Amino acid sequence: MSTPLGPEESGADPAVDMVTCQCGWTGDRNEFEQCPLSGDDLWDSVPPVRQLIELTVADGARFSLAPGSGLGLGRDESYPAAAAFAAHTNVSRYHAMLRYDGEKLFVTDTDSSNGTFIDGIKLEPNREHRIEPGAALRLAADVPITIDWRS
């Protein structure tokens, strides 16, 4: 039995098509038509695992999210992205949190003063919301975050 390759080992080879089965097994569906654990058909039932998501804040600052990672959005200096929001005083110190599980991207408004929006709809605070590919994410009234879904 072949050992599945993780994103670090697979590199940028376009012939590699990593998927995660519903049972949690991850492997290249070009090598495996069925999950060796559950027997699920990897071509019909399992979406490909995304390798990276790129985020661009209104001022052009860019950040990457790898599968299993998160990013705090806000002006607090403990956040790696704080400098990108420093000039945006309508963005709270602890505005929102992003979480990427390798297939889906989520945002939680952390009780910000001016809200977090998906496609213009204000999100309920302190509740995780899924961001679909193509959706527009915005902090407060005028701080868009562009999401580049890479596979």
Rank of each mutant, 00 (worst) to 15 (best):
I118A: 04
D109E: 09
A141T: 11
Q51Y: 06
G60Y: 07
T89D: 07
S45Q: 14
S151P: 05
L73V: 08
W149Q: 12
L37S: 12
R75I: 01
P47A: 05
P80V: 03
R127M: 14
A82V: 01
P14N: 08
D142H: 05
E128C: 02
I147A: 02
D101E: 05
A66Q: 14
R75P: 08
D59G: 04
E103H: 12
H129L: 06
H88N: 08
S45K: 15
D44E: 15
G6Q: 12
R150V: 12
D119I: 04
K122T: 10
F32T: 04
T116H: 02
D111V: 07
D13Y: 05
E103A: 09
A86W: 06
A87E: 13
N114Y: 10
P144G: 05
P125D: 13
E31I: 06
E103S: 09
L139F: 03
E8F: 10
R75F: 04
T56I: 12
P4L: 03
S151I: 08
V46E: 05
I53Q: 03
Y100K: 01
D44F: 10
R93P: 00
D28H: 12
P67H: 02
M97W: 07
T26K: 05
D119C: 07
T56L: 08
V91I: 08
V49R: 15
R50S: 06
P133R: 06
P80R: 04
F63H: 07
D28C: 15
D59A: 14
Q34T: 11
P36T: 02
S38M: 10
S10K: 13
L123T: 04
V49E: 10
S10L: 13
P125R: 08
A136H: 09
D41H: 12
G60N: 12
A66E: 14
E132M: 15
R99N: 09
D76N: 11
V57S: 03
R62T: 14
I131Q: 03
E128P: 05
D59Y: 03
L98N: 02
T3V: 12
D76S: 11
K104L: 13
E33R: 14
G6S: 13
V49T: 07
E54Y: 06
P80G: 01
R93F: 06
T56V: 14
L105M: 10
Y94H: 14
R62H: 01
R150T: 04
V91S: 01
E124R: 14
T89R: 13
R127A: 15
F32I: 05
R93S: 07
S45N: 15
L98I: 00
H129I: 03
E77S: 12
L55C: 13
V57W: 02
A12W: 11
E31D: 09
